[in-house]
């Protein structure tokens, strides 16, 4: 959902790479309606590569399944990847400039210096 396009000299800035130092997995309530609604808002290929990069693919397919709304088991796995895995400490990395945005306590810091804008 994030890009670093706002930076000086960065054209696309998407997708940001994720480097996870600490991962936390938790269990939260599953809402199939929400997951079905959010999937079309996501770039599926990007989600898969992001999940791969932190080693939490959960056997998600390369291509989005047809009629995924009806596939509860599939929605549950998407739910886990989206809502139950938290990068506690790590970095988001701009794919063009290599600028690193640190993640501390699960909160990414996207603040730029004056000369980067």
């Amino acid at each position: 959902m994030l890009t670093s396009k706002c930076m000086k000299g960065v054209n696309i800035g998407y997708p940001l790479k994720i480097k996870a130092v600490d991962l936390k997995e938790s269990e939260v309530d599953f809402n199939p309606d929400f997951i079905s609604r959010i999937i079309p808002k996501l770039d599926w290929t990007v989600l898969i590569s992001a999940a791969n990069s932190i080693g939490k693919n959960e056997n998600l397919p390369e291509n989005l399944l047809p009629e995924y709304e009806k596939n509860t088991e599939f929605l549950k796995r998407v739910h886990h990847v989206l809502l139950e895995i938290d990068v506690v400490n790590g970095e988001l990395i701009c794919p063009e400039s290599g600028r690193k945005f640190p993640i501390n306590n699960g909160i990414p810091n996207m603040i730029l210096n004056e000369d980067e804008v």
Binding site: L2, T3, S4, C6, I107, P108, N109, M110, I111, L112, V117
Partner: peptide, 9 residues
């Protein structure tokens, strides 16, 4: 996330 509202991420 920590972010300046005027700069869109």
């Amino acid at each position: 996330l920590v972010n300046d509202f005027a700069i869109q991420f």
